[in-house]
Design a protein around this nucleic acid. Sequence first.
DNA 1: ATACTATATTCAGAATATTGAATATAGGTG
DNA 2: CACCTATATTCAATATTCTGAATATAGTAT
Lengths: 126, 126
Amino acid sequence: MYETQSDLLKALSHSTRLAILDILRDGEQCVCHMEATLGLRQAYISQQLMTLKQAGLLGSRRDGLNLYYRVIKPDVFNILDALRSVSGVTSKPPRHKHAKTNCACPKCSSKTDRVTLQMSLGEGSQ
Amino acid sequence: MYETQSDLLKALSHSTRLAILDILRDGEQCVCHMEATLGLRQAYISQQLMTLKQAGLLGSRRDGLNLYYRVIKPDVFNILDALRSVSGVTSKPPRHKHAKTNCACPKCSSKTDRVTLQMSLGEGSQ
DNA sequence: ATACTATATTCAGAATATTGAATATAGGTG
DNA sequence: CACCTATATTCAATATTCTGAATATAGTAT
């Protein structure tokens, strides 16, 4: 009877997975972004992403080589916000920019010369 | 950084512990009440109570032989309510009467002749 | 096809959680 | 004190989760 609920909680009960969800608060992000932001190995992040996906919390979208993950049950943030409050965490969750088509994370933008393209495009339209 | 939060979630990620917290929604209850309500062995319930207590969620009060547990961080119910919503649980959490001094649970009241006392006292004052 | 990049999967050992059984403790009563 | 009741603790076996290492896959470019 409480199995469904405890299963969901188990998916959330992991510091890396909580961090991932906070990264996804403002919208989809690619794996490389999380890799750069969290400073963790790609395979490890992918594992945690799979756990969250199997729990029904995440969806993904491919764009070329990049896979963008997003939260498909936004109400999960209600859980996380309440959790913060009970845990006595006062700081706000970190804000992240919505990922661009060509992932805006430091790693992605510094590896290729896309950075030039990005800069010339600016932040305006599209 | 997310350790505190995931530790709290781990304490919650258990179907019996979720059931216990729901029993405590309306106030303190003795262990025997939970034993009767959940149909689980006393030692097992006590173990789960210890887990919740160590997580800082429960407090207890002794009255004679009975120990009454209560939730000391009521905000935890915000987490549980949000959890229900995300899990797609539509039913309301079960409501329990606030435990009387001489525990009102079936087990307690049927074992001794206190049941007579209880009935003669009625539900009114005190 | 080959090579490269981003991401996923598999496997295994270590760490941790679950749970039953037995037993201990603490308060109450006579 | 002896004995009963309510609750807690300890221990051990099992199950689950965590995590790193190695490897696989899928898309892109040449």
